[in-house]
């Protein structure tokens, strides 16, 4: 069942996320559902594949903001690191970052959809 406890087990900083969502549990969970469906994940994946660093930065930056507010730490941490590399448009292999991010996102997706 998708609830605060499940999010906590996943590694999210539920207290912070809930606080940002004015302590409204229902609203917080709704926002987390939205986060896993966020189009920026796709944008980031495509941009990295196409080596479009500008686009990749924008997508990573957008994800950073949303995940940061919701305090979904396991995905937020690699996104933050990746964003900083992308900010300098560093020519590096972003594949491992992307993989961690997408794996964690998939994991969260399963948690979110557990009760569906």
């Amino acid at each position: 069942m998708f609830d605060l406890e499940a999010l906590r087990r996943f590694g999210a900083n539920v207290e912070d996320g809930l606080n940002t969502c004015v302590n409204n549990e229902e609203f917080y969970l709704k926002m987390v559902r939205k986060a896993v469906a966020d189009a920026s994940f796709d944008r980031l994946e495509k941009a990295v594949e196409g080596k479009d660093l500008d686009e990749a930065f924008e997508a990573a930056h957008a994800l950073k903001g949303a995940l940061g507010n919701l305090a979904i730490t396991p995905i937020l941490e690699p996104v933050v690191e990746m964003t900083e590399h992308l900010r300098g448009r560093e020519d590096m292999d972003y594949g491992p970052y992307l993989k961690t991010i997408l794996d964690k996102k998939k994991e969260l997706e399963e948690i979110v959809n557990a009760d569906v």
Partner: peptide, 10 residues
Amino acid sequence: EEINRLILGR
């Protein structure tokens, strides 16, 4: 980012 908009709105 829609999530950010909605959080601030709330």
